[in-house]
Structures are given as structure tokens and as C-alpha cells.
Design a protein around this nucleic acid. Structure first.
Length: 463
RNA sequence: GGGCCCUUCGUCUAGUGGUUAGGACGCCAGGUUUUCAACCUGGAAACAGGGGUUCAAUUCCCCUAGGGCCUGCCA
């Protein structure tokens, strides 16, 4: 087994977008595969044809691609494996691990209700009949009556179930189509999945599936059931709690690596370390370091983790993301024209923001068009004294050969000294005329970002 | 109802049979200061409750409470 190549899979049903919980499950699968030099696969569980849509399949792929969790091979579509599922069901029939049940759905419901009322698991009366019934039938699994099923879960530890508590579940429906419980087992087996990492809503299912593996005489994968993410009130995650598609987090201004890092730390830990690069995680990622308790989503923490990755991100990439953001909200006209300026200003800008959206807001001063309209309390700093001083400052700055932030910083300090005033007397009015009060970096950085002509022009406009 | 899982600051978590129970986000106070942030320093803040086991339990066991999952001819 140690020599076996690790193969993991993410198996969403295409009934909606890639939500945050699915993204986390995918992340753990991807990480485990990477950490073990294995393969990460995708299987689209589209056997419920009525609810599955191509749009959802596309949305899931887009989400995974954006997050950087692309599979190593083309996705497997569960619906295309039907023949294999059927084959397995008939093999079970032959081996005596399953039987034909001629109960109608209504009869089955009644039987089940009666069995549960009596305190034991559902067993179809057809389980041991030798005759053949009338009409259509389903193929039911013959659940073992005695003993127990033990799951050695990488996250949950050893979990034991008494076999007598499990119903005889349907493997093949009356129309001959396979059910989920059969399909997962067959597909995981056929795909050579070595580690099944999924939400802990499947923990009990793992026991049922384990019984099916045994009945088929197949070896089992290692199971790892990861707790589901809860909302901030501890209840099940719902839309209002942030059970949104990953694209919603992208639109909030999260970077894929930022979201990944946040999701990673939601349940998994490595001592006190909060911020990880991919390489760092891949070196130390292990399933047994995943917490058994369900975590809650915290958007503020997410943003703060994102901030760290924002600082490490490439300036040109950030500039392009900011431009895209500005274009989509129509806040600035033709932001792409100032791409170079944006890139140059990025080192001063990016430590000030947690998300791309905040970063975009911080660039508003760059896109303001002259003359700036200065109103409100910021205008109060522009009294006669200040205006005269700005006039002298304009000459001083205009005489500079070097329009770089350090040189500008020195010049501003020297100017305040010459004037014999505190820096506030210079800084406040200068900031007013340059930005009209919009958030902006240090004055020297702001001047550098605006450039000589624009800066001097904005000063002239107001004196 | 039955089965199963979970429970350390508000949140994410570290941690150990004996610790001043650590870190991060958020919060509060102070500092820096040219806006908004960022940044720096300091602070408040937790072992769900009850029984055991033990010289000693946050740590091991049991019960209770609370939360969650499964219990479909959904996945």
C-alpha cells in the first residue's frame, strides 16, 4: 500500500455552482494528492439527470480553475459509467449479496415505517423469497445482520456501526438505473481511488459503502471525512451565511491563493502558522491534522488572510485585477490607460488593502480628473496662508530633477523646514489639492504615482 | 424515534495527566501621523455542565446539555 500511487477525487453533483464547502473539500483532495505525488481527479455525479445541468458542470470547472485546483485528468461523468454499475449490481445478485425486491415504493415505505417503529432496520420481505414477483423490481443490497462495520477514518478515527442498524438499500431502481450508493463504490473502485476525502455528511454512508465493497470482494480506499463548514451561528451553512459560489468570493476581491489559505486553515492547522505558500503546505499537509469539529465561516478573517497574499502578489497582476474591477464597476474611465502608473504605484498601494476591491478603491485618487473639486472639511485646510505656501511649494517641487518618492519625501521635509512650520502645515493642504481627501498613500508616494505634470497641475488648479 | 460525529477566548485554532492555557482575526487603549488604511505597543477575552479514574484533570472514562450528519427507487 505505501508504494501505491495516491489517487484522490472531488465528486460534486452538478446541481449548482462550486460552493465554498465544496471548494474546501476539493482543496483537501488536491493538497493530499500533491503532498503525496499523487493524482487529483474529478468525477461529476450526474446520475440524477433531472437536477443536473451543463451550466452547473461549467460553473464547477470555472470555480476550480480559478482556485487553481484543476484536475490531473479529464473529468469522469458518472452517468457514462452506468453499464459498469449495472454489471456490479448483477454480480452482487449472483453472489447473493443483493436480491430482487418487488415491493412498490408505497409498500416499501410502509414496511420501512413498520420496521423503524419496531426498532429495527428495514428488511424487504423479498430478501429470502425464492419465487419471482410480478411487475417491476428494484435490486436491493442484502445488508449484513450481525457483527459490525468499522471505518478507520483518517480524520474521525475508528468509528463503529452495528450492522443490524442498516436498511437494505436500493442498488438499482425499478427503471434499472443505479443509485448513488452503488455508483460511488463502483466508480471509486474503477478510478483507482486510494483516498476518499469528502464531507462528514458521508461518514455513515462510508459504512454502507464499506459493506458493498466487502460484498463485491473489493479492496477499500482510505476514508477521510472532513467536517462541514457551518454558518456563523453554528447552524448549517446557508446562503445568508456565505454558502456562495467561489466566484462570489472572487467578486469580493479575494485572491485564489488567499481563499485557499483561509479555507486550509479552516479546520487544518500546523502549529501556530497562519500564512502558507503552496510549497509550504504541500510539504507538511496531512489528513490527521484536520480538526474533527465543524468550523464557522468568518469573512473578516478571510480578508485578513487575503491581505497577506495581496502583499506578496505580483504588481502587474494586481494592476490588471484592479483595472478589471474598475472597468466592471465603471468607477474610472479607461483605467487600462494608466496601467503602467498603477504598476509603479502598486508597492505603495498594496500594503494598504485587504482585497482587490479595497485596492481598487485606493486608486480613485489616480483617476480623478482636473480640476479636482475640493469640498467639506478638507477644504478648510486651504486658507490664504496655505495657498501661498502651496505656491512656493510648487516652485520648489518644480525645480526637482528627481521625481521619485524618496527624493520627493526629502524635498517636502526640507520645504517644511525652510518655511519654519510643522509638516502638518504643508502636508494637509498638499494632500487636499492632490487627492481632494480621497484615500491615498504617503504624500511622497502619491506625488510619485501621479507624476510631475499631474501633480503640479493639481496644485496650480487650486492656487 | 434509531445510529453516528462534534464541543478550548466572540471566531479560526495550538496545547499538555502538573503550563502564567499559546497564536491569529475581530474588539478596546496608546503610539506613529499628511487623509484613509497599514504599522508598532499594551489590554480584555476560553477549556459547555455534572459525575468518576488519579496525588493531580482542559487533557482519560461515563452521563447530561447543545450543535451537526445519516436514516429516499437524492447525491
Amino acid at each position: 500500500m505505501p508504494s501505491e500511487t495516491v489517487v484522490t477525487r472531488f465528486a460534486p453533483s452538478p446541481t449548482g455552482f462550486l460552493h465554498i464547502g465544496g471548494a474546501r473539500t476539493a482543496l483537501f483532495n488536491w493538497l493530499f494528492a500533491r503532498a503525496n505525488n499523487g493524482k487529483f481527479l474529478i468525477r461529476i455525479e450526474d446520475t440524477d439527470r433531472a437536477r443536473s445541468t451543463q451550466a452547473a458542470v461549467d460553473a464547477i470547472h470555472e470555480g476550480l480553475d480559478w482556485l487553481g485546483l484543476s484536475p490531473d485528468e479529464d473529468p469522469v461523468y458518472q452517468s457514462k459509467q452506468q453499464d459498469r454499475h449495472t454489471e456490479a449490481a448483477y454480480e452482487l445478485l449472483e453472489r447473493g449479496g443483493a436480491y430482487r425486491c418487488y415491493l412498490t415504493p408505497e409498500e416499501a415505505d410502509a414496511e420501512r415505517a413498520r420496521a423503524h417503529e419496531a426498532g429495527h432496520a428495514f428488511r424487504s420481505p423479498w430478501r429470502d423469497r425464492k419465487d419471482t414477483g410480478e411487475g417491476s423490481f428494484v435490486v436491493r443490497f442484502r445488508a449484513p445482520d450481525d457483527g459490525e462495520t468499522v471505518i478507520h477514518d483518517e480524520v474521525q478515527g475508528e468509528v463503529r456501526f452495528a450492522n443490524k442498524t442498516f436498511d437494505d438499500l436500493v442498488l438499482l431502481r425499478a427503471d434499472g438505473t443505479p443509485t448513488y450508493m452503488l455508483a460511488v463504490v463502483v466508480d471509486d473502485h474503477d478510478m483507482g481511488i486510494t483516498h476518499v476525502i469528502r464531507g462528514d455528511d458521508h461518514l455513515v454512508n462510508a459504512a454502507r459503502q464499506s459493506q458493498i465493497y466487502d460484498a463485491l470482494g473489493w479492496g477499500k480506499p482510505v476514508f477521510a471525512h472532513v467536517p462541514l463548514i457551518h454558518g456563523d451561528d453554528g447552524a448549517k451553512l446557508s446562503k445568508r451565511h456565505g454558502a456562495l459560489g467561489v466566484e462570489a468570493y472572487r467578486d469580493m476581491g479575494m485572491l485564489p491563493e488567499g481563499l485557499r489559505n483561509y479555507l486550509l486553515r479552516l479546520g487544518w492547522s500546523h502549529g501556530d502558522q497562519e500564512i502558507f505558500t503552496d510549497d509550504e503546505v504541500i510539504k507538511v499537509f496531512a489528513l490527521d491534522a484536520i480538526n474533527k469539529a465543524a468550523p464557522r465561516l468568518d469573512l473578516e478573517k478571510m480578508a485578513s488572510v487575503n491581505a497577506h497574499h495581496l502583499r506578496d502578489a505580483d504588481d502587474a497582476r494586481l494592476a490588471d485585477l484592479v483595472i478589471a474591477r474598475l472597468e466592471s464597476e465603471g468607477a474610472a474611465k479607461k483605467p487600462a490607460q494608466k496601467r503602467d502608473q498603477l504598476i509603479a504605484a502598486m508597492p505603495a498601494l498594496k500594503p494598504r488593502a485587504k482585497t482587490i476591491n479595497e485596492l481598487a478603491d485606493q486608486t480613485a485618487f489616480l483617476f480623478a480628473s482636473r480640476p479636482l473639486e475640493i469640498t467639506g472639511k478638507i477644504a478648510k485646510s486651504l486658507n490664504d496662508d496655505a495657498t501661498e505656501r502651496l505656491n512656493r511649494l510648487k516652485d520648489a517641487l518644480g525645480a526637482l530633477d528627481d521625481w521619485s518618492a524618496p527624493a520627493l519625501g526629502d524635498a517636502l521635509k526640507a520645504f517644511a523646514e525652510e518655511e519654519g512650520v510643522g509638516f502638518g502645515k504643508v502636508g494637509a493642504p498638499l494632500r487636499a489639492v492632490l487627492t481632494a481627501g480621497a484615500p491615498a498613500p504617503d504624500l511622497s508616494d502619491t506625488l510619485a504615482a501621479l507624476g510631475r505634470d499631474e501633480s503640479l497641475g493639481r496644485i496650480s488648479d487650486q492656487i
